[in-house]
């Protein structure tokens, strides 16, 4: 029994397995053209070898973590009580409280994002888009780039070369929906609806709300798909052509394809940037081995309508349940699941308990200095040719949904000899 427990409570792995390979090794879970998987897209890390060749140097891990912090600050600023607006459209009692959105030139919305390739227009033009469960509006850079376009890998979408493209009028319901989907009131230019979306780091896209045919695969084609045709796009979106929004709002891909896929989607992110995962719309595989937790309702006001909230009931390290009061998570305002944030953020008390127990169970390994936002680090320079043993970490979400993390979700390799616990604490117990 003890041996069995050990097998379940520890991961044994080669330290070098935490590093991505230089060549792409596609996952066998993605089978293009399969009838059952007709609505499935291949997911690749935008800076890995499975992505299209880079026009610029990929960011360092330190830069990715700095961008991650910027994204987290942005999400938490959006969910701050001072953002609440009453149904009458008036600011609530927190109106005098100032929200400082992070303004940090050089930081992107999140450099650790994953991309998918979709077709837009007739005939379809292939575009590499960041996929993001933390936002709603899908947008791409559009010709003639009236104000500004950044450099992207794919040819910039040209509406005039698509026979199915049209602009959307200011009077349409979709134009009105932009307010909640982007957080900004839409504009109007010669009766054409104008969107503007700005991210926490001041990156933005402004352009025309448009509709055209979205092609996910030959058998998954959606006419009259609403998206942003960006004429002024600035920020560090890398070489991608834009973003595909998988949030909960009405303009998200999830909502726009609800008639076909029933607001059901799934994804798998690969264990390293040198492999691939998938994003599937609809019930594309048997869900027998999937355990579910109910979405939690948010008490954070209108700005939280995009996010997917869940409740954490507990965390275990090496099979040992951490002593964390439920009030710790409640005081933090809940938990969201986000595909665009790299490192899981926990309330200070929860992170402290996690880090302390992890250190206790990892005490045979020499420690290493902190790295960026990661403060629980180890020096594995003497273990490059032998296996290391790390405790498992599991999260239990409401409804007794216990999720064991993969080893790739526990340690993140910093360099050839150092790796860190891939978690960080929030600085404030109430945010």
């Amino acid at each position: 029994d003890e041996e069995d427990d050990d097998l379940h409570h520890f991961h044994t792995l080669h330290f070098t397995s935490l590093f991505p390979q230089s060549l792409c090794t596609p996952s066998s879970s993605f089978t293009p053209g399969s009838k059952q998987r007709s609505s499935t897209l291949q997911v690749v890390h935008r800076h890995g070898p499975c992505s299209v060749p880079h026009l610029t140097t990929p960011p360092s891990l330190a830069e990715i973590l700095a961008a991650d912090e910027s994204r987290v600050e942005s999400i938490q600023a959006k969910l701050a009580p001072s953002y609440e607006i009453t149904r009458a459209g008036k600011r609530n009692k927190y109106k005098d409280r100032k929200v400082d959105l992070p303004v940090q030139p050089g930081r992107s919305l999140g450099s650790g994002n994953y991309i998918v390739r979709v077709g837009l227009g007739t005939p379809p033009k292939t575009l590499s888009l960041i996929f993001d469960t933390g936002s709603d509006l899908t947008w791409t850079q559009c010709q003639p780039c009236a104000r500004s376009c950044y450099q992207q890998q794919d040819p910039i979408f040209n509406p005039s070369s698509s026979s199915s493209y049209s602009n959307v009028s200011c009077a349409s319901s979709q134009c009105s929906q932009l307010s909640s989907a982007t957080g900004n009131t839409p504009g109007c230019s010669t009766k054409t609806c104008v969107y503007g979306i700005q991210y926490g780091d001041q990156s933005f896209s402004v352009g025309f709300l448009s509709k055209d045919t979205l092609t996910i695969s030959k058998s998954a084609v959606f006419q009259n798909f609403f998206f942003g045709c960006g004429q002024n796009n600035q920020g560090l979106f890398g070489n991608t052509a834009g973003l595909i929004g998988l949030g909960r709002d009405q303009l998200s891909v999830v909502s726009q394809t609800a008639g076909t896929y029933g607001k059901y989607f799934s994804y798998c992110l690969p264990s390293s940037s040198s492999s691939t995962g998938h994003l599937s719309l609809g019930r594309s595989r048997a869900s027998g081995s999937v355990i579910f937790t109910p979405f939690a309702s948010s008490s954070q006001g209108a700005a939280s309508n995009s996010f997917y909230f869940v409740d954490i009931d507990g965390i275990s390290v090496g099979g040992r349940a951490l002593s964390i009061s439920q009030s710790v998570f409640q005081a933090a305002g809940g938990t969201i699941v986000d595909s665009g944030t790299v490192i899981t953020r926990l309330p200070p008390a929860a992170y402290s308990a996690l880090s302390t127990e992890f250190q206790q169970q990892m005490k045979k390994y020499p420690v290493a200095p902190a790295y960026s936002i990661l403060d629980t680090c180890y020096d594995f320079s003497n273990y490059t040719n032998t296996k290391i043993v790390i405790p498992t970490i599991s999260f239990t979400f409401r409804g007794n949904a216990k999720v064991n993390l993969d080893a790739s979700g526990i340690l993140i390799a910093i360099n050839g000899k150092q790796a860190c616990l891939a978690f960080a604490g929030n600085s404030d117990s109430s945010t």
Partner: peptide
């Protein structure tokens, strides 16, 4: 707000049943 980030989601099949009001996790998704 706590955030369950993408590093921790690696290799899991993460299922969003939005209409059903639930989120699922499956081991060995890719």
């Amino acid at each position: 707000v706590a955030i369950f980030g993408n590093t921790q989601q690696k290799t899991l099949e993460v299922v969003y049943d939005v209409a059903g009001g639930r989120l699922g996790f499956g081991a060995g998704g890719c």
